[in-house]
């Protein structure tokens, strides 16, 4: 169960990562392993659903673009990438990283790519949250009359 949670974590991180940052980290971090495509990078859509009233029955909200790719490393591990948008190179990189994370290279990949990516994305979120917090209303009540 723990392994699945961990894998969900990095696949989701790669899906949301800025493409240019992922490409840059991948470029410097790892030697490209030998691999074959199980599914060549493919652009498609996913129908996003919402819930009525936020909590009720589902309805179809609209689609988003997604690119997917599956690879098998020469050493046998299979990796899948599903990334937001229409970037085929990013989907392939995500699939390769998913595969490599199942090999002995996992620790190195985590240190060189996943950890810095996660830190940058967390920082970006925190920056936005701080700007939002600055617009939070502090109500005060005017006291009238005798004290």
């Amino acid at each position: 169960m723990h392994e699945i949670e961990e894998r969900k974590g990095w696949i989701g991180l790669l899906a949301k990562a800025p493409a240019d940052r992922l490409a840059a980290l991948w470029e410097t971090a790892a030697e490209r392993p030998g691999f074959t495509h199980l599914r060549a990078p493919e652009v498609g859509g996913a129908m996003v659903r919402g819930r009525m009233g936020g909590t009720g029955a589902p309805f179809n909200l609209g689609e988003m673009t997604v690119t997917r790719c599956s690879v098998r490393l020469d050493s046998g591990e299979v990796g899948h990438g599903y990334v937001q948008g229409r970037d085929k190179a990013k989907a392939e990189t995500a699939a390769l990283i998913d595969a490599l994370m199942q090999t002995r290279a996992a620790g190195a990949i985590r240190d060189a790519i996943l950890t810095p990516l996660k830190a940058e994305m967390t920082k970006a979120k925190a920056d936005r949250a701080e700007k939002a917090a600055a617009t939070k209303v502090d109500f005060f009540t005017m006291v009238r009359g005798e004290d």
């Binding site: 859509g45 819930r51 599903y82």
Partner: peptide
């Protein structure tokens, strides 16, 4: 353009309670 895209599936309903709110 949308009609040219193969559909990979439908997502789980988004959890708006967990939204990171700008507003």
């Amino acid at each position: 353009y949308r009609t040219t895209l193969p559909r990979f599936g439908s997502t789980n309903p988004v959890d708006t309670e967990a939204m990171q709110c700008d507003r």
